[in-house]
Design a protein around this nucleic acid. Structure first.
Lengths: 218, 218
DNA sequence: AATGTACCGTACCGTACGGTACGCTTCCCT
DNA sequence: AGGGAAGCGTACCGTACGGTACGGTACATT
C-alpha cells in the first residue's frame, strides 16, 4: 500500500466545497445512485461546470471522498507525559473518536460507495478510504502504543499486531453491521462504554501492570 | 432483527441452481454491474426464463444470496465433553472457518453487492447476509461459549458481549480491508495463526484459568 | 461601451440495460 | 401422430443517465 494520494493539499474554492457538500448530502440520503443531474440541481450549478471542475462522475466522487477525508483529520495525540491514567485516557479517547466516525451517516455512505466501486474496475476509492481511515488511524495510534511500551506500561513485540488487536476490540461487528443496513443506535453513552471496555480488554492483554488495575474483572 | 427469511427451504431444480451458480461466478468477476443479458448468456438460458423464475433482477440476486447462504451452512458444533483442550480446539476451528469464509471471493462479492444495495431503497439483501453470516455465527458459537462457562472453563456475564469480543479478535480489520479492495493474501497458515492468536487472547480475557496457560506472553 | 470569462439552466444525444414479445426447437403426455 | 408446455435465442421497447452543446446573464477588465 505504497502511499497513494497521501494527503494532497486540496485547493477548492468556497463554491466547489459547496458542491462537494451537496454530493455528500445526496450520497447520505440517496445512496450510491446519485446522478449528475441531481447533484447539479442540489448544488444550483450546471452539469457543464461539474464536468469542467471534476472531469467525470468518478472524479466528482473521488474529490468528495478526498475532501471529506481532509476534514476529518484530527489533531495528533501527543505522547508526552505518559503515565497509566493518561495512556488509558488516550486509548479511550481514540476509541470514542473512531466509533463516532464509523457510525456516522457520512462515513457509512462513503464506505458504501467505495466498496461498491471496489467491485470490478479500478478500486481507487477503496484505496483512498482505506488510506484515510484504517491506515491513518494506525499511524496516529502507533506512536502512542510505542510510547506506552517505552514507558513500561505496555508489552508487545509487533506494533502493527497490537494496533490491529485494539482495532478489533473496538470495532468488533459494528462496522459491517452498519454497512449492511443493520439499525444500531450508537448513542454517546454506548460508545463511551464500548471504548472503556475495549481499552480495559486491551490493557488486560498487553498492559504490563495487568494485575494491579483490576482489569480482569468482568 | 426479527427473524426475517429465516432459512426457507429452497426448492430449486438443477437447472436453476446452475443459473444461480452463473450469477455467483459473474458477481465475483464482474462486480455488481452484472447484467441480465450477461447472466442469460453465461447460463445459456433466455432472459424471459430468468424473469419467469426469479421475477426481476433483485429477485435473482436475492435468490443467489439465499442459495449461497444455504450451501455454507455447516454442521453445528457439539457441546459434549468439554475440557480445556477441546474448547480451545472448538474456538480455533470456528475462527479458521470464519476467516476462511470472509476471505473467500464469493463472500466478498456477495457482501459488496448487499452493501451496495443497502444504500438507499430496501436493504433486504443486507438483512439476509447479516442473518446468514454474522448472526448465524453467533447462534452457532454461543452454545459452545455457554457450555464452556457451565464447565467452569470460561467466565462472562453476557454471552452476546463475549461472542462479539471473540468476533472482534478474529476479524479485526480484515473484512473491511478486503471489502475495500485491499489485497491481503490470507493463506491457510496465516489464517491458522490468526485463529490461534485470537483464541489465546479470548481465553486470556474470559478464561477461568487465566494464569495457568501463560496466555499473557507475547 | 466593448469584450471576455465564468457559470447557470436546459435541451439534447448516445448508449446501456431492465424488461417484454415472438419465433423456433425439444420433449412430454395421451 | 397431434397438442401443449418449457425454454432458448434474439429482436425490440422505454427509460434513465452520463456527457455535451448552447443560449442567456452577471461581472470583471480595458
Amino acid at each position: 500500500m505504497q502511499q497513494l494520494t497521501p494527503m494532497d493539499e486540496i485547493v477548492l474554492t468556497e463554491r466547489q466545497a459547496g458542491v462537494l457538500d451537496a454530493v455528500l448530502r445526496l450520497l447520505v440520503e440517496k445512496g450510491d445512485q446519485l446522478t449528475m443531474t441531481a447533484v447539479a440541481r442540489r448544488a444550483s450549478c450546471s452539469k457543464e461546470t461539474l464536468y469542467k471542475w471534476f472531469g467525470d462522475r468518478d472524479g466528482l466522487i473521488a474529490a468528495t471522498v478526498r475532501w471529506q477525508a481532509s476534514r476529518v483529520r484530527v489533531a495528533p495525540i501527543d505522547r508526552a507525559g505518559l503515565d497509566g491514567a493518561t495512556l488509558t485516557a488516550r486509548l479511550e479517547e481514540f476509541a470514542v473518536n473512531w466509533l463516532t466516525v464509523i457510525s456516522s451517516q457520512t462515513s457509512i455512505a462513503l464506505n458504501r460507495v467505495a466498496i461498491g466501486q471496489a467491485a470490478g474496475r479500478q478500486a481507487s476509492l477503496g484505496a483512498i478510504v482505506l488510506e484515510n481511515g484504517r491506515f491513518a488511524m494506525g499511524r496516529r495510534l502507533k506512536p502512542v502504543l510505542e510510547a506506552g511500551r517505552d514507558a513500561g506500561l505496555l508489552g508487545f513485540d509487533d506494533t502493527e499486531a497490537a494496533f490491529r488487536t485494539f482495532f478489533g476490540l473496538v470495532a468488533r461487528d459494528i462496522q459491517i453491521r452498519l454497512l449492511l443496513g443493520d439499525r444500531m443506535d450508537l448513542d454517546p453513552e454506548t460508545i463511551r462504554a464500548d471504548a472503556v471496555r475495549a481499552t480495559r480488554q486491551f490493557l488486560a492483554l498487553h498492559g504490563a501492570t495487568t494485575t494491579s488495575t483490576g482489569a480482569a474483572g468482568s
